[in-house]
């Protein structure tokens, strides 16, 4: 009888009603605490269900009870997830800020790079992409490397102490980065593709638009069959890297002792787009430096056979490029180093 009795107990218990009651209590539990109370009541050790399970004897009742238990357990888990999500949503809502208010964020004091460095890196990267090596070279030079090897004629004005800083008869502050061309050509046989960056010195009076020290980049390519067209293409690439893909580049004849033919690249003025404005002195174009095919005399000076090899070289001012890129009207800010200016970059 005891068996029947126990079966009867289970049977006496309306499993369906219990489950329905439990599910409703769980679904309506307003808090995690209330949910936990409901869980203890319906699934705890002393709960009706657990007691019934302990007393179960036949497979059918057990199955029914376990199914009910699983449903209740999953309802508890589901409700818990609901309640936790709601709590998180509430917390997040409570923490919400008006992100459009222009109050400062937590302050991290960042420094800045000088505009010369920013431009220098653009130049370096443009040439690295073309497969050039980047070099730096000495700034105090001999007249031999600064003038003679570059085929400056004896009466060239740059040889005058009025234009150039002489330390003594034989030592000068280099007037352009070109001596590094000679150093590289003396050091290794062609082919050579290199760009040299650094400070150069000219005896200019200090004005808002001039300073006797500035930075230059200077490139040299020596290979078989290099042409004027290759020089134009290379400079076009670099000018567009510096000033944007939409820039036009034109070339003018010029004269440098170490190149023949010599040319100067101009870029179309980014301010007025060729219409003429103050920045371009109403010409629509801005002078960007000097260039040309390496003069055979220079090759002979360093022992490279000009009938086998040809080359081109070019040089441009970095401050000038930075001025144009950033719209800096004068040279003065580059050397003043006022943090109010530097922190813009």
């Amino acid at each position: 009888m005891s068996r029947r009795e126990s079966v009867g107990t289970v049977a006496a218990m309306d499993v369906a009603a219990l489950e329905s009651e439990a599910l409703s209590a769980i679904a309506s539990a307003p808090t995690l605490g209330a949910l936990d109370d409901a869980r203890v009541r319906y699934l705890g050790r002393k709960s009706e269900l657990k007691q019934a399970l302990r007393g179960v004897r036949d497979r059918e009742s057990g199955l029914a009870l376990n199914t009910a238990r699983e449903r209740i357990e999953s309802a508890v888990a589901e409700r818990e997830h609901e309640l936790r999500s709601a709590a998180l949503q509430d917390a997040l809502s409570a923490e919400a800020l008006d992100v459009t208010v222009s109050l400062p964020g937590d302050e991290v004091h960042l420094g800045t790079l000088h505009p010369t460095t920013l431009t220098r890196r653009v130049v370096e990267d443009a040439f690295l992409g073309l497969g050039y090596e980047v070099i730096e070279d000495r700034e105090v030079e001999t007249t031999y490397y600064n003038f003679d090897q570059l085929a400056f004629p004896p009466a060239h004005p740059t040889r005058s102490p009025r234009d150039t800083f002489f330390l003594d008869e034989e030592r000068v502050l280099r007037t352009e980065t070109s001596p590094s061309q000679i150093h590289v050509m003396e050091a290794k046989p062609p082919p050579i593709y290199m760009v040299s960056l650094g400070r150069v010195y000219r005896r200019d009076e200090i004005t808002p638009t001039r300073f006797p020290i500035f930075h230059q980049f200077e490139g040299l390519a020596v290979d078989r069959h290099l042409t004027l067209a290759d020089l134009k293409g290379t400079l076009l690439h670099v000018m567009r890297a510096l000033y944007g893909e939409e820039r036009q580049v034109r070339f003018r004849t010029h004269f440098f002792p170490f190149t023949e033919p010599s040319i100067e690249p101009d870029v179309s003025c980014p301010i007025c787009e060729l219409a003429g404005c103050r920045t371009c002195k109403f010409t629509g174009w801005i002078e960007m430096g000097g260039a040309g095919m390496v003069d055979p005399q220079v090759f002979e000076n360093v022992g490279i056979d000009p009938t086998e090899w040809s080359g081109f070289a070019f040089g441009c001012g970095i401050e000038r490029a930075a001025q144009l890129r950033h719209g800096i009207p004068e040279i003065r800010p580059f050397w003043e180093n006022d943090l109010r200016v530097l922190r813009q970059f």
Partner: peptide
């Protein structure tokens, strides 16, 4: 000068 095209060197060695 204005008729000279824009080309890039044809190269066998690139070491930049």
């Amino acid at each position: 000068l204005e008729d000279v095209p824009f080309t890039l060197p044809v190269r066998r060695e690139m070491t930049g």
